[in-house]
Simulated scan of single mutants.
Amino acid sequence: MTVLYYMHDPMCSWCWAFRPVWDDVRQQMPDSMEVKYLLGGLAPDSDLLMSAETRSMIRRHWQVIEKKVPGTRFNYDFWSRCDPRRSTYPACRAVIAAKNQNPMLEDAMIQAIQHAYYLNARNPSDDEILIDLAYSLSLDVSRFKNDLHGADTQAELMSEIRTASNMGCTGFPGLILEDRGAFRHIRIDYSDAGMMLQQLSSVQAL
């Protein structure tokens, strides 16, 4: 089967901007293609608060995205309500923990993290936020807590990061199509699902 790999991080702001078009791609892509998610892991675990310089840089980054991808919204209250840390691995492990309980909830956890972070000004670097999201998805919260920092979950995250890197992923979001043993990068478009669907169809027609 042909596989479309989606490389991402649940706390990647460009992945958030790509979300609406990515949903369209998934809904319209050929049934013969399987989608597999690979976590890229933007920032390792850290208890250090972001510096004022880093906070300012990310705020400016959000503003750039809002201009380049109309319709993308960010809740800037995050910067006054939360104590931001440059740490996305907890959110990545939350996605794995959810998927391991129910593969159908992998994308639901990604979306829940994105909504918490970008719309509701909640910090997905904090365990209590991730646990609350697990509860909202009706996951086994006790198991989720154990898995969130479990060795097996961390090992799976590092394996996905290595796989994405070995496939040539250099940024997020990323799309790579595996077809008949060959890997082909699919050019990302933040406004036009049709452009990416055309690329997928062209590869299959070869």
Rank of each mutant, 00 (worst) to 15 (best):
residue 1 M to V: 13
residue 7 M to F: 13
residue 9 D to L: 10
residue 11 M to D: 01
residue 19 R to S: 07
residue 19 R to E: 13
residue 19 R to K: 13
residue 21 V to G: 01
residue 22 W to N: 03
residue 22 W to I: 00
residue 26 R to I: 00
residue 29 M to D: 02
residue 29 M to G: 01
residue 30 P to Q: 11
residue 32 S to C: 12
residue 33 M to T: 09
residue 35 V to A: 09
residue 38 L to V: 13
residue 41 G to E: 02
residue 41 G to W: 05
residue 44 P to R: 10
residue 44 P to M: 15
residue 44 P to L: 15
residue 46 S to E: 08
residue 48 L to R: 11
residue 49 L to D: 00
residue 49 L to I: 00
residue 50 M to W: 02
residue 51 S to V: 09
residue 51 S to H: 10
residue 52 A to T: 09
residue 55 R to D: 04
residue 59 R to F: 04
residue 61 H to D: 12
residue 62 W to P: 08
residue 62 W to Y: 14
residue 62 W to K: 04
residue 66 E to M: 15
residue 67 K to I: 13
residue 67 K to P: 00
residue 69 V to W: 01
residue 70 P to Q: 01
residue 71 G to T: 05
residue 72 T to G: 01
residue 72 T to A: 07
residue 74 F to I: 12
residue 74 F to V: 13
residue 77 D to C: 06
residue 77 D to V: 06
residue 77 D to L: 10
residue 81 R to E: 05
residue 82 C to I: 05
residue 83 D to F: 07
residue 84 P to R: 06
residue 85 R to Y: 04
residue 87 S to E: 01
residue 87 S to D: 01
residue 88 T to N: 03
residue 88 T to V: 09
residue 90 P to T: 12
residue 91 A to F: 13
residue 94 A to V: 15
residue 95 V to L: 11
residue 97 A to E: 00
residue 98 A to F: 08
residue 99 K to E: 13
residue 101 Q to L: 08
residue 104 M to A: 11
residue 105 L to R: 04
residue 106 E to I: 12
residue 107 D to Y: 14
residue 107 D to C: 11
residue 110 I to W: 01
residue 111 Q to W: 09
residue 111 Q to D: 10
residue 112 A to I: 07
residue 112 A to M: 05
residue 112 A to S: 10
residue 114 Q to A: 12
residue 114 Q to E: 14
residue 114 Q to T: 08
residue 117 Y to Q: 11
residue 118 Y to S: 03
residue 119 L to E: 08
residue 120 N to I: 02
residue 122 R to Q: 11
residue 123 N to A: 06
residue 124 P to V: 08
residue 125 S to N: 04
residue 125 S to I: 00
residue 126 D to C: 00
residue 127 D to K: 12
residue 128 E to C: 08
residue 129 I to H: 03
residue 130 L to R: 01
residue 131 I to K: 03
residue 131 I to Y: 01
residue 132 D to Y: 03
residue 132 D to M: 11
residue 135 Y to V: 14
residue 136 S to D: 11
residue 136 S to M: 09
residue 137 L to C: 05
residue 137 L to F: 04
residue 139 L to Y: 03
residue 140 D to G: 12
residue 142 S to W: 00
residue 143 R to F: 02
residue 143 R to Y: 00
residue 144 F to E: 00
residue 144 F to W: 03
residue 145 K to Q: 05
residue 145 K to H: 02
residue 151 A to S: 14
residue 153 T to D: 07
residue 154 Q to L: 15
residue 155 A to S: 13
residue 155 A to L: 13
residue 156 E to A: 07
residue 158 M to Y: 06
residue 161 I to L: 14
residue 165 S to M: 10
residue 169 C to S: 11
residue 171 G to Q: 13
residue 174 G to D: 07
residue 175 L to K: 02
residue 179 D to R: 09
residue 180 R to G: 07
residue 180 R to A: 15
residue 181 G to L: 12
residue 181 G to R: 08
residue 182 A to V: 15
residue 182 A to N: 13
residue 183 F to N: 01
residue 185 H to C: 07
residue 186 I to Y: 01
residue 187 R to I: 14
residue 187 R to S: 07
residue 190 Y to E: 02
residue 192 D to W: 00
residue 192 D to K: 00
residue 197 L to E: 08
residue 198 Q to W: 04
residue 198 Q to R: 09
residue 201 S to N: 15
residue 203 V to Q: 06
residue 203 V to I: 15
